[in-house]
Design a protein around this nucleic acid. Structure first.
Lengths: 357, 357
DNA sequence: TTGAAAGCGCTAACAC
DNA sequence: GTGTTAGCGCTTTCAA
């Protein structure tokens, strides 16, 4: 294994010079730099990660904690994870993958061992057992999702309330007066991240303002469940002319069922989905949708967590020995990404009650 | 930050004793061990990962390299990743997530820096640019997937040829004589992992033996494409009474289309899918399927890579200074997981050509 | 059964 | 602009 010392000898300089060439924390003459870089290349030198972490007290690793549950729509998780990994690499960091399996303990372990410099937690629940640990952690953390009590935390999420409002508005403008919401499974509403409730609240709020009636039904996403949900909706509100779906699994079955029932989209019924772009465009009808900006969420999470890490480094101007907390940051910061509605082929004007115009 | 030295002082023992209590590499009297463990608990000690890696030359980290492309069926990737992470944790390791973005370079970086002790590569292509690096790497690696030339490599994959044979057999036993294969997108067959070809070959081979005719058509999984594929199939082989689908995206549309065409499953047409269990069971008809054992693949990959790491450690009995390679292992090892077919509601006896029995 | 001490490879003062 | 050097916290001989 090639060490920094060997590179130094090979280039005829001191170890610190090599180190500074690598870090750029000191100005080096072009001549020296080039010599060092040449040696590095010729010897095939790679700085040892462990030694670096030990000496600098920074691992250049961000821990990403995935949810334990798998009832979440997986592609979104994956897309976030990939965005996190990509963004982190752009900024010289690697990503450590933690599953929910280990539970809150993982936070302690990773932070305590100095394995990671920072954490990103996905799929945060309203009452998340990891939160107290995060608040006490000396390392910066960012949540993807919005817990019931976000105080002292940094959170990134889609603005689901605005999403709901946007959907209601779009349909109202098209003249719809009876709108149904096909939501997530009932269990999601009970124990979970709250995004479902927030969307629904947004829909109701704006719909009320615009004189649109809203009927909400949860749906577990299976074919049967979707059939049942649709049947109930048209049973209870025969005048329903538009559906907002916030449940990726239910989209396919729903379109299939509408087709079977002879309801044309969008002539007889309009459909808006809250889902990733890919899902919206790959259906039998291209869906008008509000995108779940998975990539952006992942990217912003990394940016925020690294900003916090930087702030923590910068602070405590070497000498003020008082503070106990290293500076994970105590401020509450909630970043809600603005929703964007893309009109495609699944929404159109409300059908006129009977016969011709 | 609590260090090992502090724990030692607190427990009234030497640093090495604490270290050995932690590693179990030396017998410690119960009395001493308990005292040390108590101190560890009371002080909230966590061994520093960087220092450990530096001193022991092992990071206890496995790198997991994900594919760059996203046209792979994502949930399977995710399931493998989670299985890898879980299994690794059970064995005291963490997982570093690498995306394909960085390309082969990532292999060099991670191995060179000692950041990871071993690597697992997912979604290996037939001609994969990472392979030469892997062969030369001093650290053990395991591939998930089977490249064209697996020599000197360790690979885990589902036995897709056997999968194809199993499907052909099942349908033949039910009396089907004309079978169609709805496959992956054409692009997949051209540039990719070869699993699609292997399945197809298995189907053809066994079908030929059993006197069953096979028609294969690629399909990109969109609704339109699936419709086109189905139309062609029934056009060219009106007697087709069974379909084998190896394309998760095409399953939903296909069932929907068959329904529209008034073809009942399984009375008029039998369907077998090659897909994860979850996908098979969540359709409008529970599908007879061969599972993609994502979890098992992830688990085995970790087990194999750790076995190789262990072997590399054990070998070179301290003194035989000759060998250059650290012992990543030069033997070729291919582990093909046996497929398992689960009969559900989508396959049944072939319909009799005309009218009654 | 336990201690003492020599590094592991790098960073970051501190000197010049 | 560059060199010297003292650690970072742990593992692991070697010695008792």
């Amino acid at each position: 294994m090639v060490t920094l010392a060997e590179v130094a000898r090979h280039a005829g300089v001191s170890a610190s010079t090599v180190s500074y060439v690598l870090s750029g924390k000191r100005t080096i003459s072009t001549r020296t730099r080039e010599r060092v870089e040449k040696s590095i290349r010729e010897l095939g030198y790679h700085p040892n990660a462990g030694a670096r972490a030990l000496a600098s007290n920074k691992s250049n690793i961000i821990a990403l904690m995935m949810p334990l549950r798998t009832d979440m729509y997986v592609p979104v998780m994956m897309e976030i994870a990939i965005a996190v990994a990509t963004t982190a690499r752009e900024r010289g960091h690697d990503v450590l993958l933690l599953t929910g399996q280990e539970g809150p303990e993982a936070v302690r372990r990773v932070v305590g061992s100095g394995l990671a410099d920072a954490m990103i937690l996905m799929d945060v629940e309203l009452e998340d057992t990891r939160l107290s640990l995060v608040r006490e952690s000396p390392r910066p953390a960012v949540l993807i999702g919005l817990p019931a009590d976000p105080s002292e935390l940094t959170c990134v999420d889609l603005d689901f309330a605005a999403t709901g409002r946007l959907c209601a508005e779009h349909l109202a403008e098209l003249g719809h007066r009876d709108v149904a919401v096909v939501g997530e499974a009932a269990a999601v509403y009970e124990r979970r991240t709250g995004f479902a409730e927030r969307t629904l609240q947004g829909v109701r709020e704006r719909a009320a303002e615009l004189g649109v009636r809203v009927l909400h039904r949860p749906c577990d996403g299976s074919y049967e469940s979707t059939a049942g949900t649709l049947a109930r909706i048209f049973d209870e509100r025969p005048a329903t002319s538009a559906v907002i779906v916030q449940n990726e699994a239910a989209i396919g079955p729903m379109l299939s069922l509408l087709r079977q029932q002879g309801r044309a989209v969008p002539e007889d019924i309009s459909v808006i989905a809250v889902c990733p772009e890919q899902v919206a465009t790959q259906q039998s009808v291209a869906l008008t949708s509000v995108a779940i900006p998975a990539q952006e969420m992942g990217r912003r999470a990394v940016e925020l967590v690294m900003a916090k890490a930087g702030a923590a480094d910068g602070r405590a101007p070497t000498g003020a020995g008082a503070g106990a907390r290293a500076g994970a940051g105590t401020e509450t910061l909630i970043e809600l990404l603005p929703p964007q509605l893309t009109v495609r082929a699944s929404t159109g004007p409300a059908p006129t009650p009977t016969g011709a115009p």
